[in-house]
Amino acid sequence: MNDAASRCPSPGLVSIKTLRSLVCPRLYQETVLHVAQQSETDSADAEHRIIECLRYLYLVSAHPASLRGQFLPVEQEIDDVWHYLILQTREYKTLCEERLPGRFFIHHRSLPYGEHRQEATREQRIEAALRWLPLYRDTFGAMDEHALPYWTMAKFLRGQMGLSLQQIADLDR
């Protein structure tokens, strides 16, 4: 990944280098190969997906009180990466319990969107989806074009509402 965020992150932000170091190099490369083959994409796109999955897991781990149990805010491509990591049981356990900030195992529970809709009001669903954006910005910096396609609410705000990446980053300011 050769973008500005990986070269010189702002002080206090979690860098791409730090995220990559959360998993052993062998597993990282295996995951890149798996994602590239399964999605018929190149390794650069596969790496973007892996980084966004690690960002998702990092946020869940760092903010369990506000994020645990929330409907998955990322697109299927990121969920697919998560599934692959979970299947590497030993390494996934180490990632969750020793490498991520919360130091607890992050369970995956499938919840169909229809069931999620029945459990929460429309306003609650919107608030929950928006909750991720300032946490993302404050932890990793403003979302970029590589991350945008994988975060459902950001993708909606950009594509349907016409917000710029800066406007998305500034939503709660």
Rank of each mutant, 00 (worst) to 15 (best):
M1V: 14
M1I: 12
D3E: 05
A5N: 06
R7F: 15
R7V: 15
R7W: 13
R7N: 07
P9H: 07
P11Y: 02
S15G: 14
L19F: 02
L22Y: 12
L22T: 03
V23W: 02
V23P: 04
C24P: 02
Y28R: 07
T31D: 02
V32M: 12
L33A: 14
V35H: 00
A36W: 07
A36T: 08
A36F: 07
A44L: 09
E47A: 09
R49V: 08
I50G: 08
I51M: 01
E52P: 00
E52G: 01
R55K: 15
Y56F: 15
Y56K: 12
L57W: 06
Y58H: 11
L59N: 00
A62V: 04
A62R: 13
H63G: 06
A65N: 11
S66G: 04
L67A: 04
R68A: 12
F71R: 15
F71W: 14
L72P: 07
E75Q: 06
E77R: 02
I78M: 09
I78Y: 03
I78E: 00
W82F: 13
Y84K: 13
L87H: 13
E91V: 06
Y92H: 13
C96Y: 04
C96W: 12
E97V: 12
R99Q: 11
R99S: 10
I106G: 15
H108F: 05
H108E: 14
S110C: 05
S110H: 15
S110N: 06
L111E: 10
L111V: 09
P112M: 09
Y113K: 10
R117A: 07
Q124M: 07
R125V: 07
I126E: 11
I126M: 06
I126T: 05
E127Q: 15
L130Y: 07
L130P: 00
R131S: 08
L133G: 02
L135E: 08
Y136A: 00
D138V: 00
F140N: 03
F140S: 07
E145Y: 10
H146W: 06
H146A: 10
A147H: 05
L148P: 02
L148M: 13
P149S: 02
Y150E: 06
F156Y: 06
R158G: 04
Q160F: 00
M161N: 00
M161V: 12
G162P: 03
G162L: 09
S164A: 09
Q167E: 14
I168Y: 10
A169M: 03
D170G: 08
D172T: 12
D172I: 10
R173E: 14
